[in-house]
Design a protein around this nucleic acid. Structure first.
Lengths: 373, 373
DNA sequence: TTGTATGCGTTATCAA
DNA sequence: TTGATAACGCATACAA
């Protein structure tokens, strides 16, 4: 793609030379004055600024010239644009929507714009219509100041492409939800979330707990490992051997998310695993678990306690109230803090890549109670 | 905001001069060859292209120079970036999410990126944190090829800002959902939606119909007028006087959306309006209406028939199935067609601003039936 | 404190 | 078909 838009009148902007002529000074005095360089006499500067204002001078109109000139000294202009790489599903999942809202809020307040770079799904979010193979041209032009990666982006080719792109590789990158080499990151404390869940169940008197995991993404695998560490910590803190009481499930990728949950629960029952509580992968998974348990005649929480994760989706009881005990994730803050850190790096206020982990909270509702047996 | 990012190594890209030196030709022969100008000899061109490839030449790296040079002849480079102006709520409403999905799909397939320019709400989407007063700098730099306006954007200052901005005003603008002067547009046929709704009710035997409208936005007001035209057409086609049978409601802006619906229905009952069917503003409004009717002891559809609009939100019956008769809007296609038209304008394939109206469809489910009285 | 000269990498005009 | 030269508008080193 080259030149020629549907454009006519090619807008001829005011130049420094024209201001200089009107002021009877040299154009580079104008250049200095407009950048409020102290070397210019106050009176001259004042006059120049007034004339520039009056003539409608806007430095952005001649940005190409500035960029060209600036190459000699190796300086860069801040574009006030960051790119957001995502899976193509943030309109459909509250989980991503909340993170996006946080990003958007901070970017808006700081006059940065977000450029979307979706992993290419069709409008239904089902069919992958194109994988990342190259970066959009705007990156090569050097018009992007930084990048934000959500979800499995860390495991895509995107980081490689970004670090390889000469026009971008000096720019900071923010990886949300999990750490990535060469990036800053904002994480949720899933280990703590796991710990809080099991501690809660142990305090209620539960011992044997089923850890129910759905089909894996790269991110899901990482998070599962974190949470299991937390589960173990809670058992150990209570003087119990996690190996004896914690029952993990094996994931079968060819099954649907629901079937994975249902099968694991059915298998556990059939094998006589004496579990009295289920830890779901997330709130959706908790819904699957309740359904699967119901089909086995098991009620929540009377027969089995159930804990979700994320706190993005309610599990409704008969009174249409959310009954799900779950781990609340500060997803909006993940977005907010991610944006803040990235913009700090871009502005040079933060020198090094920085990683922070945000605390999570266990919300106790009705889906957990003392064990029946 | 001026220079100096957090950047170090200032990436020194290959220039045409360097290629020319290696090939023993003049740099402007290289310039012509790289743009595959027929004036350069085939053999020379081939050699130059090979060397450029080998040296890793990328025209995008020196885009600033190209833009500067191109100013003389008044040409413009296509940036492959369009701006999306929106209300800050498309992550929270399926209505907007579907339009966005359509936009995103087409942009992805055509290698265009979307730059988000939200009307500035905070992360909860509640508090307006900043109104549009100026365009982001990227517009003044001339790095945007076109703009898309959703929802009330048409009535904001945005069109004014766009048409006033010298670096943008020659670019095409797409207004979605309603027409706007100086813009292309993609609309839904709300008049037809209104017509189909009333025709369906009349065919079932209904006569007196309550038209229930919630608090108004500019867009809402426009759409309401369209639909009322359709209602009238259906009555007239049946040889009935709409003035006698169509009962519009007065909106009270200080009431919530639910209260507006509930009050109107209560008032109509109290005043003895013999309505047997309700036309809601949208599916959410239909939910409100069912609730308000239930509080008056009226069941849907036995006592009152109910029709929604949009087909974005189910009204669940006891079996958790969607029972709502509603007008399905092709929202994804609004996004798709909007993007296609805009990109066509940008590429110069479409010369004039174009307006299209997409057909809607009445989906008959369980919320409508013959009148009881 | 201000003016002069040069370069940034490209495109375009005009000769050769 | 190719080469020389002049913009494009700004920043900067250096001279005045």
């Amino acid at each position: 793609m080259t030149e020629q838009g549907a454009n006519q009148q090619p807008h001829k902007p005011v130049t420094m030379q024209e201001i200089a002529d009107r002021c009877g000074v040299n154009k580079n005095t104008v250049s200095l004055a407009l950048r409020s360089d102290p070397r210019v006499a106050v009176a001259t500067a004042h006059r120049i600024l007034a004339v520039a204002e009056e003539m409608g001078y806007n430095p952005l109109y001649n940005d190409a010239a500035r960029r060209l000139a600036l190459r000699k000294s190796g300086k860069r202009i801040i574009n006030q644009v960051v790119a957001l790489f995502y899976e193509g599903n943030f309109t459909h999942h509250r989980y991503y929507a909340e993170i996006f809202d946080g990003l958007s809020e901070v970017c808006t307040l700081t006059d940065f714009q977000i450029l979307l770079v979706p992993r290419s799904f069709d409008a239904q979010g089902k069919r992958l219509i194109r994988e990342f193979k190259t970066l959009p041209p705007i990156f090569s032009r050097g018009d992007i100041d930084g990048a934000i990666l959500i979800d499995d982006m860390r495991f895509s080719k995107v980081p490689h492409l970004l670090f390889r792109e000469p026009s971008f590789r000096a720019c900071p990158v923010m990886s949300l939800l999990w750490p990535a080499p060469g990036c800053s990151s904002v994480l949720t404390d899933d280990e703590q979330g796991g710990y809080l869940s099991v501690r809660h169940l142990l305090a209620l008197g539960h011992r044997h707990i089923l850890h129910c995991w759905g089909p894996e993404s790269h991110l899901g695998h990482y998070l599962a490992k974190q949470r299991v560490l937390g589960y173990r910590r809670a058992y150990q803190e209570a003087g119990l051997d996690p190996e004896q009481y914690l029952h993990a499930t094996v994931v079968e990728p060819y099954l649907s998310a629901y079937e994975n949950v249902a099968r694991r629960i059915q298998d556990a029952c059939r094998q006589g695993v004496p579990f009295t509580a289920v830890l779901a992968q997330n709130d959706t998974g908790a819904g699957y678990a309740r359904q699967a348990l119901a089909e086995l005649g098991l009620r929540v929480p009377q027969d089995v306690s159930l804990i979700g994760f994320d706190d993005t989706e309610p599990l409704l009881d008969d009174a249409r109230q959310n009954m799900l005990t779950t781990v609340h994730l500060p997803l909006v803050d993940v977005g907010r803090e991610g944006a803040k850190l990235l913009l700090g790096r871009i502005r040079g206020e933060i020198a090094e890549d920085t990683s922070i982990t945000l605390p999570v909270e266990l919300i106790v509702r009705g889906s957990t109670g003392p064990p029946a047996r």
